[in-house]
Nucleic acid binder design. Structure first.
Lengths: 161, 161
DNA sequence: TATTGTTATACTCTATAACTATA
DNA sequence: TATAGTTATAGAGTATAACAATA
């Protein structure tokens, strides 16, 4: 009947796993509203980013790149296609597969979404100096890079958005 | 039929949200096997840590501290109680509530689990220098601390383990 | 009337198995 | 026989609603 505005548990603030999960959730919560106003989810933003960067690709390719099953990809692309942000074209050289491509509207939407995401990222990183933010990003990049190499000898790990 | 050992998409490696999610997933994947061998999940480890640090507490208190619903807490405590790691005692001053407490076996298990977690954390952070690891932890702590303050004016965000 | 723990239930997310059309 | 996309379905995880005991 008193201490209800708790704040994060000090006992967990030294646990890197907790810090990462919580920071990730925090950033996602900061990002999602902005993206929602633009009519895309975090994951859709990831798919659009990937598709623009790595050219026309099949659903399967995209799925493996993003770390989800190909069956999960179906609904994702369904939604993006319905919003006219992505196009399904048959691959002439393999008519089982699609060549997915970002539409003009999709590229425009992606630019706006990227701005919204970058704004949210800056907001979440407000307590850090510019140099610290860069250091954080670089550190995470190295961990992911190394971890990805090692886990390619074992099971694959997920993550989109 | 060639580029199958992909690695992380460069297009997403500048996205902090992606880096955080992926690092978090990577670390969790590194931690879980070690904890599994000790018979606890990541979330159970979090509950034990919290309970040891913040003394006897009710399920509701614990749930709000960890950011889950009180109904979710029931099964969690059921499992910990069945393993004799946590004890349910009625609160004499409020017989609706429990006073949950870590058993002696629970404290022992927690010590072992903490060692396993710290080992996994070091493994995941191997590509960073000691100074960089500390900087990463400190940076995340500040982001979480600040973010927690701001989101207490809005909705609560989750994260356990 | 409100609160703690509980259960039943529904919802979300994701993967596995099985089908189709292509190869 | 294998592969790309699809569908149906099942499993994990979580929350909402409703109930009993207590306040």
């Amino acid at each position: 009947m008193s201490e209800n505005i708790s704040g994060p548990p000090p006992a967990l603030m030294e646990r890197l796993s907790y810090l990462l999960k919580r920071t990730s959730a925090l950033l996602e919560a900061t990002i999602e509203p902005g993206l929602a106003r633009l009519g895309v989810s975090g994951r859709e933003f990831g798919v659009l980013t990937l598709l623009e960067a790595e050219g026309p690709a099949s659903q399967q390719h995209l799925a493996s790149r993003i770390g989800v099953d190909r069956t999960t990809m179906v609904a994702l692309i369904d939604a993006l296609e319905e919003k006219r942000l992505v196009n399904r074209r048959r691959d002439p050289s393999n008519r089982r597969a699609y060549l997915l491509e970002v539409t003009a509207a999709g590229r425009k939407r992606l630019r706006d979404a990227r701005k919204a995401v970058e704004l949210a990222e800056q907001e979440a990183l407000a307590p850090l100096s510019a140099a610290e933010s860069v250091a954080l990003t670089r550190a995470l990049q190295r961990v992911v890079q190394t971890g990805a190499i090692e886990s390619s000898e074992g099971r694959a790990t997920t993550a989109a958005s």
